[in-house]
C-alpha cells in the first residue's frame, strides 16, 4: 500500500518559489492501476519522482507498506528503488551502448539475480512487450522510439516490483502496441497484485485504470469513476 501524506515539493527559481507538488495526499491499495492526468508542467513527473524515491519532498511523507521514505538513508532508498519500484521514463533512459537484452537484465544484475535466470526472464519480458527476438540483442541506439519504449517497460518489470511508476508509457507507441501495453499493465495489476501509477495524456489509457487523478497547479484531485472527456 502506498500512502501519501501532505506531500509538498518546492523549487526556487530566482525570486519565485514554485510548488509543482502542493499538499498532495492519497492512498493506493496494493494492486491498484491508477493514472494521473494533467497539463504539461503541472507536476506529474515531480510527483512520480517523489513516489519513486528519486527526489526528496520539501515536506510531507510517502509511506510504503507503512515505512516512511522520508526517514530512509540513501542506501535504503537505493535498495527500495531496486527491489520495489519499476520506472518507465518518458525519455526511456536506456543505456545506449548496451543491447535491449542487457538493458532489461541490468536491474536484475543489481538485485543479484543469477545470470542464467536473468537472461531467461529478460527474454520472457521482451517477448511480452512484443519485441522481435532479433531486436532483443540489438543496441538500443539501433531501435526505434517505440521499440525503445517497450524495452523500457520490460526493464521496469524486471525485478517484479510492487509499484510501477510509468511516465507516458504509451506516448511513443502506435495504437495497437499501446493497447497491448495497457493490457499488459492491467494484467500485471490484476494478476500479480502490482500497484501501477501511470502519468499520461492518453485518455484511453486513463479510462482503463481503476482510479484517475488530475494534477492542477500542484494539487491532486481524484476524478469520478467515469470516462474522462
Amino acid at each position: 500500500m502506498i500512502e501519501v501524506k501532505n506531500l509538498v515539493r518546492t523549487f526556487n527559481s530566482g525570486d519565485r518559489t514554485i510548488k509543482p507538488v502542493n499538499d498532495v495526499s492519497f492512498v493506493l491499495e496494493q494492486g491498484t492501476l491508477a493514472s494521473i492526468v494533467g497539463k504539461s508542467g503541472s507536476g506529474k513527473s515531480t510527483l512520480l519522482s517523489l513516489l519513486g524515491a528519486l527526489d526528496k519532498p520539501t515536506s510531507g511523507d510517502v509511506f510504503v507498506n507503512g515505512v516512511s521514505l522520508a526517514g530512509m538513508p540513501d542506501g535504503k532508498l537505493t535498495e527500495y528503488r531496486r527491489r520495489d519500484i519499476g520506472f518507465v521514463f518518458q525519455q526511456f533512459n536506456l543505456i545506449p551502448n548496451l543491447s535491449a537484452m542487457d538493458n532489461v537484465m541490468l536491474p536484475m544484475e543489481f538485485a543479484g539475480v543469477h545470470r542464467t535466470e536473468r537472461r531467461q526472464r529478460a527474454t520472457d519480458l521482451l517477448e511480452q512487450v512484443q519485441l522481435d527476438p532479433e531486436k532483443q540483442v540489438r543496441r538500443i541506439n539501433r531501435l526505434s522510439g517505440g521499440e525503445q519504449q517497450r524495452v523500457a517497460i520490460a526493464r521496469a518489470l524486471a525485478n517484479e516490483p510492487k509499484l510501477i511508476l510509468a511516465d507516458e508509457p504509451t506516448g511513443n507507441l502506435d495504437e495497437q502496441t499501446g493497447d497491448h501495453i495497457i493490457e499488459l499493465l492491467s494484467s500485471l495489476s490484476r494478476d500479480h497484485n502490482t500497484t501501477i501509477l501511470v502519468v499520461t495524456h492518453d485518455k484511453a489509457l486513463a479510462n482503463k485504470t481503476d482510479r484517475r487523478f488530475r494534477l492542477q497547479q500542484g494539487r491532486l484531485t481524484e476524478e469520478p469513476a467515469r470516462a474522462l472527456v
Binding site: G52, L54, G75, T78, E79, R81, R82, R83, I85, F87, F89, N93, L94, I95, P96, L106, P107, F110, A111, R155, N159
Partner: peptide, 16 residues
C-alpha cells in the same frame, strides 16, 4: 551523468 542517474534510479549501488 545522465547514465549514472539512470543506473541509480533503477537501483545500482554507488559501489557498483
Amino acid at each position: 551523468r545522465r547514465e549514472i542517474g539512470v543506473l541509480k534510479a533503477i537501483g545500482a549501488p554507488n559501489r557498483t
